[in-house]
Amino acid sequence: MHETDGRRSASRHHRVFLPVLAALIALAWVALWAWARSPYGRYLEHEDWTASGPAALLCRVVPAGDVVVPMVLYAAAWILMTAAMMLPTTLPLFNTFDRLTAQRPDHGRLLMLLGLGYMTVWGAFGLLAHALHSAVLSLLASVPTLAWHGWLIGAATIALAGAFQFSRLKYRCLEKCRTPLSFVVEHWRGHGQARHAFALGVQHGLFCVGCCWALMLLMFALGTGSLGWMLLLAAVMAIEKNVRWGRRLSTPLGVALLSWAVVLVATTHA
């Protein structure tokens, strides 16, 4: 009986779960591609939110619209970008949790809560990154001397991402992300299922942010609307987390980023 249930679970896993998750990831990428090529593609860059178009109209109509509308639009863009870039890196986690909870009647709801917890953490990180980005832009606008040397911020961001590749925090968090079965066994209690499924997603999201935050900040230096850079960074993070030799990618990537920052500084001063 258990063997039959196991075969049914495996069949459902390959027939339903994997195609659905793949479709969600593909849909996120297609939506980003369509958005970037639409008349509203500038919103992906988080610039000119209130200058013109529908966003400007909403800013005038909605109370405190100059703050609320950009934040909502930014959150939507960031969550879409995170879904496209980060969900592929978490496939082993969802794969493990799907198999573990396959026999539960609320299986689908638990999977959604796991994903919601994970995306909540990345959404919070995105809002913090947006606030920091806005503060930097305001500082540049108010201090002309800094504006002339604004390129230093991009170089510093790239250098920070490179240096972080050598940190102990990076490797500690990366190990948690690379061992999803151990992570789920350690944190999943199976009682109070809905609450614990969401908490499991939050906990894994925290470790995921812990190992990838510096690489994600590169999007602010490279352009948050650049699909090419998104694809490249998503591939790098997926390899680091999911491929057997992925951990060995961290050091050469750090060297490459630090070298890039040095070249930027040298060529700009030349």
Rank of each mutant, 00 (worst) to 15 (best):
L114V: 06
A194F: 03
V61Q: 04
S134D: 13
Q193P: 14
V68S: 10
A163Q: 04
H191V: 09
L160H: 13
A199I: 01
T145Q: 15
T89Q: 11
Y171V: 08
A221D: 13
L137Y: 00
S138A: 15
G246Q: 02
S250R: 02
V263S: 11
A55P: 12
G115M: 02
F220T: 04
F198Y: 12
G117M: 05
L227R: 11
V185E: 15
R195N: 01
V143F: 10
G254T: 11
R42N: 12
D98N: 14
T96K: 10
P88L: 07
A28I: 06
L116P: 01
Q203K: 13
W49N: 03
D106K: 08
H107Y: 01
W260F: 12
C177W: 01
Q103N: 08
L24G: 05
L93I: 08
H107D: 00
Y171I: 03
V136F: 05
E175I: 00
L169E: 12
A64C: 06
S9V: 09
R99Q: 14
A76N: 01
G228C: 03
A256I: 09
H2V: 08
R104N: 10
L110I: 05
G150F: 09
P180Y: 04
Y118C: 06
A156C: 10
F198D: 00
A76R: 00
D48A: 14
Y43G: 06
H107R: 12
I153G: 02
A83W: 01
G123P: 06
R172D: 14
M81R: 07
V20N: 01
V209F: 13
H133L: 11
A221Q: 11
H204A: 04
G192Q: 11
F17T: 04
L93M: 12
G246P: 07
C173F: 09
G246T: 03
R247C: 06
R172I: 08
L233S: 04
L128D: 02
V69K: 02
L160Q: 07
L140K: 02
E175P: 00
R178L: 07
G162R: 07
L200G: 02
G210W: 10
L27C: 12
A84W: 00
H2A: 13
T145G: 15
V136C: 04
W78N: 05
W260D: 01
R12C: 02
G108N: 09
A194C: 06
